[in-house]
Structure formats: C-alpha cells, structure tokens
Design a protein around this nucleic acid. Sequence first.
RNA 1: UCCUCGGUAGCUCAAUCGGCAGAGCGGCCGGCUGUUAACCGGUUGGUUGUAGGUUCGAGUCCUACCCGAGGAGCCA
Length: 447
Amino acid sequence: MFPVIRVEQIGDYEGQEVTIRGWVYNRTHKGKLVFLLMRDGYGFAQCVGFKNDLPADLFDAMTRIPQESSVIVTGVVRADPRAPGIPGGYEVGITGFEVVQAVEGEYPIALKEHGVEFLLDNRHLWIRTPSQWAVLRVRAVVIAAIHEWLADNGFIHMDTPILTPAACEGTTTLFGTEYFDEGVAYLAQSGQLYNEANIFAFSRVYCFGPTFRAEKSKTRRHLTEFWMVEPEIAFCDLDGVMEIEEQFVSHIVQTALKKCAPELKALGRDVTALERVTPPFPRISYDDALAMLAEIRAQTEDPEAKALLDIEWGMDFGSPHETALTKKFDKPVFVYGYPTAVKAFYMEPWPGRPEVCKSVDLLAPEGYGEIIGGSERISDPDLLLQHIHEHNLPEEAFKWYIDLRRYGSVPHSGFGLGVERTVTWICGIDHLREAIAYPRMINRVYP
RNA sequence: UCCUCGGUAGCUCAAUCGGCAGAGCGGCCGGCUGUUAACCGGUUGGUUGUAGGUUCGAGUCCUACCCGAGGAGCCA
C-alpha cells in the first residue's frame, strides 16, 4: 500500500509512488493512452495510463470508466507542465486502478455549458466542479480568517438567538413561525441588539450566524438565508469602528490570497485588485458621495443609466449608485454620515446635525458594492427612547435594550459583514448564489 | 410588486413568410500514444411549458395561466 495523498500536496511527492482516492472528473482516451482527471476533495490531478505498461483488462476498464465513478488510483508522481489540475503541473503515471463504484447511466452534469436553473436543481452535484469547489473552499478560508482575526483582537464569540420575539429594526419582512403559547416568533435578521448587551459583560463580542430576510428581492445581490458576522465594540466611536473594519477586511482578503492561490487561479481572478486591499481605506461622507454621483451622472450619456443615477439628498443609495461610486476607487471605500431618516433607530446622531447619523457602510471595489453596514449606537437612554417612539416601536419590547444605557452606558459601535457578498467579491464571481453551498432564494428551497 | 427577455431531445441551442422538428454535447459501438469541455466515423434520443383559440396546416399567429433569467425597489 502506497501513501494516500491529498492532491493539494501532490508536489511534495514527486518521484514517489502514491495512492489517490477519489472520483473521475473527466476521462479521455486516445487509443493506447488514457487520461483520467481525478478529484479527491483537495484538488484535481491528471492521471495517465499507457496500454503497454498495464494489464489489458485494467487498461480497458480505465478507458470505459464513466464520469464521477469513485476509484482508487496508484502511480508515480511526476512534474509535467502540460498537466491540468488544481494546483496542476504534476501528473500521476498509473500503475494500479481499482473501481469502488462505476456510475451507471448518465451523469447529469456533462462537461459543457449549462443553464442556471439546471445547475441549481443539481446543486448537490454542481459543487463537485472546479469553479464551485474553488468558491466554496475560499468561503471556508474566509470564515476561518474572520474567526482568527476577531479572536486575535480580543473579541469573544457569543451566539445570539435565531428565534426572536420581534423585528430588530422593524422595517424589513421577517419569516414567522408558530411558537407554542407565545404567538409568533421570528427568524433573526440580526444579532446586534443582543451583541450590545453582551459587550457590557465582555467588552468586545461578535456573533456569526445565519440571517433570514423574507424580502421578495430577486437580484444577484440577495439571498433569503445568508451568513453574517456582527462584531460589537465597547468604548468605540465611528472613527474607531472604521479602523477596525479596514484591519478586519484586509486580513480576510490577504488570508484568502495567501491560502487560496490555486483556487483563485482556477477562478481566473485578477489578484492584483485584491493585493491592494490594505489599510487605510478611503473615507468619504454621504454629502461628498452625492457630489461625486452628480458628477458621474453629468458625464453619463446613456439616458437610461442617467435616470438610474438620479438621487437627491436624503435618499439611500441604490445599487446603481454603489456600483458607480466604487468604480472610482481601487480599494474598498467607506461612506459615512447617511441621513438619519433612511437608517435604523439606534444610530447616534451627528453632533450638531441631527438630520445625519454616525453610520458607515463599506463598499467593495470593482462595482461589488456594500459588504458592511455599521454605526455608532446611541448611548443616551432618553435619546434612545425618543427614537423608539419616533419609529413607532413598542417601548415595552425594548425595555432590556434601554436598560443597557441606564446601567453604565458607554460609547459603542458595531457592524455586520455579509459573508456571501464578501466571498463573491474575493472570488470575482457575479452572483451571490454561488458563494453558498445550498442557496435559499425567493423561489428556491431545493436541494 | 413593477419593467425587459426567455421556455423546442438528458444538457446547450437552431428551425427563413405559418408548410416533413434539426445540430452539437452526453449515452452506446468502433478508431486513434499527450488529451486540456480531445478528435474522427456510426448510433440512440421529442406530449415544442400548460390550457384554449385562429387556420387546409401552428414550435411559429392570438388569449389566459405556469415556470425561469436579468434589472428596479429593499437590503448584508
């Protein structure tokens, strides 16, 4: 028995006879020569068999093995620049071949173009293909980098409830579910309010979990179930949270660059755009952003695009605005100081300008748009209560939340980073649905 | 919810003015010693999204509905 290798480390085994256990991603044969492109979960490696070097029945079995059959291949690793694969550059000269299960009938996903609906119906199989495999590997590294940076910077991971009594922000649609004698409970769309309680016990905390939005959004930027990491920091103002965000996002991107080079290469990602993602990030005010948008709009010829860029002070940005704005920067950009009216009730007003609040969004470059929304939170109990009334929220539901400002209130801030949006940007793909293994959308809960 | 586009073989698509429903891929059979979604020859494969209507004749025209994609709004 030869050592069972992981294909990601194939280069370490040059000249050695090894075993690869996995699946036949592709097979082609040319008379007396057969190529098997093997997947083992860790990578893709080409294995080559010559008819003259192998028993006739074994060679014949190799030329007939159907796509996605599970097999065990042994052979000698050699460097060859012609060899495809991830990481590639090495191939295995086959000396042994054992079939675990030969696929019967047609494998649904042929190696050619397919439509989106078909691929999503076969998502359980689609994740085996190199592009999807690579994206989901990047996602795993991004998530690990998130936990790593936060742990290294004094944050404690605190899980927050998924079943919650009511809307945290009251504006968006929630999924409801019957909850015994308590009426309806709602699936969480943020753990922030609980995080705010937790910082008074632990100073820096974060929650990381699924978030549910029942909005009928049907765009490449939306899922009904997505993952969000929400750090919250005591004794931190708006400037402080921007510093944390730029360190945090830079660490995530640089870790992905370091650990996922083969995956990003397989995706065809231009990594120079990612290499620039280091602190500090540019910071512009909402007012300045409006001025920039007005200029961009003035230079836009196409009347349809021009109309989409139309905006007045007091309006929130739509995706056309974000896209246009981020194309002016080669790094993520902070936009801070949004109008109070379009933001949540808990955001601290700008000193001397109550129509503006201490909110900040982080927009990813290359047109990707918002990946983080954050703010400094109101720390005065009376002001918070006033905002709760102004938003017509039930005061009694927020009693515990107001308590936080009565017992040792401090300036504090926090933000939420969307995992799928971040992965989509880092991978350079064009739709959120590929950044999660089993996307949940307005018209899809299968598989 | 609104706007635009689409639905034909397992998959990706073609079908001219309304006139015999086709190709590539996949599958199957054969050939080939460097393939990169190999290539070459043969073969298999159809309730044209659903229901109605117009017509000698409908994939094609009309009506309604269903499903999908892209965008808007909302947001991470």
